[in-house]
């Protein structure tokens, strides 16, 4: 099987400071990987580098996505190829209605894939059922993107975008943080509904609780810019019990 995503020896710096210090990670189609790790170890940095955000120097290593050099692509091209990042902190965009935004995005993707663009009616039809499943009202959809949304609403809105844009690789950066128990279930159901043999996920979280709902195939521990341990879902339970102290030495090495 050829990997969907293949990260090799990734070194990333911001300014003078090296944040990722040689990350290796391979994700095959259909697999769900979880990344856990203490605050400030580079989890979001990894997700931004995948999505193509500016300001990060890739000093070494490669990222191959669907056989292509991902780092050579613009952010929108990566999205068109099927990378989706659910932001840890979704951005508020005043004046841009949620529906306008999502329709523009969906049609950009469809165009890239050689599919016809959807008109307003077809678009609404496509979105409504998915929004309903995530408890997102029409009124919320029409509002300026994320403006005035509660933390939980923003996270649900991220999952809705993922459901609408149907990526090949979804990177969920702490999509569970800030959610109450009910919302967590709604979001987890939304994510689980998207699982398929063609779709892979990279789930960044601090809490094993989420992984009870979205059961990962692999769990990785990222400490100080390195993956210091990988295992099955039982690794998440072990972390919950023991914390990250055991990896302090490995990280320093």
């Amino acid at each position: 099987m050829t990997a969907l995503l293949d990260i090799k020896n990734l070194h990333v710096s911001v300014g003078e400071r090296e944040i990722l210090k040689g990350v290796d990670l391979t994700i095959n189609p259909g697999e769900v990987h979880a990344v856990m790790g203490p605050n400030g170890t580079g989890k979001s940095t990894l997700s931004y580098v995948l999505a193509g955000r500016e300001g990060y120097d890739i000093t070494d290593g490669t990222i191959t996505f669907m056989g292509q050099d991902l780092l050579a692509l613009e952010p929108h091209e990566r999205a068109c190829m099927g990378i989706f990042l659910a932001f840890q902190y979704p951005v508020e965009i005043p004046g841009v209605a949620g529906t306008t935004f999502l329709k523009t995005a969906l049609n950009a993707l469809r165009k890239y894939r050689g599919e016809g663009e959807l008109d307003a009616m077809q678009f609404l039809k496509h979105v409504r059922a998915k929004a309903k499943a995530l408890d997102i009202s029409d009124e919320m959809l029409r509002r300026p993107l994320n403006v005035g949304f509660s933390g939980g609403e923003k996270k649900r809105n991220e999952v809705l975008q993922m459901a609408v844009l149907e990526p090949k690789l979804a990177v969920l950066d702490e999509t569970d943080s800030g959610l109450d128990i009910d919302a967590l279930k709604v979001v987890a159901d939304g994510v689980n509904a998207m699982r398929s043999p063609e779709r892979s996920m990279l789930i960044i979280t601090h809490y094993q609780r989420l992984l009870d709902y979205i059961v990962p195939d692999h769990v990785h521990v990222l400490v100080a810019g390195r993956i210091v341990a990988s295992g099955g879902k039982e690794l998440a339970h072990e972390l919950e019990a023991k914390g990250y102290a055991q990896y302090a030495d490995a990280a320093a090495a």
Binding site: E74, P75, A79, V91, T104, A105
Partner: peptide
């Protein structure tokens, strides 16, 4: 905001236009 829009598949010019 610009990056957020781009990360959804919207090219830079269109994203700027939206903003």
């Amino acid at each position: 905001a610009l990056f957020y829009l781009q990360s959804r598949g919207i090219d830079e010019d269109t994203a700027r236009g939206l903003l």
